[in-house]
Amino acid sequence: MKATINGRLRELPDELTLARLIELLGSAGKSVAVAQNDRVIRRTEYETQPVRDGDCLEIIEAVAGG
């Protein structure tokens, strides 16, 4: 399947959860938050929340700023 992650269209394995996607992206254990199609997903749901074909995902972190 294909999904847009942080503005970039990516080919992804089928049957993917958000937790597995974060792991594939090398961000497991890092403090991130995710919006799936403009809806923020609770961290407790990452293990069960499926990524679907055509999804638009925003994965963010805290960075330096004023």
Binding site: L25, V32, I59, G65
Partner: peptide, 19 residues
């Protein structure tokens, strides 16, 4: 203290964070 919110770097997601 204030922090900003930005997309993670998909090309280099490893390493420490501001937090």
């Amino acid at each position: 203290v204030t922090v900003a919110i930005r997309r993670i770097n998909l090309d280099d997601a490893h390493g420490g964070t501001l937090l």
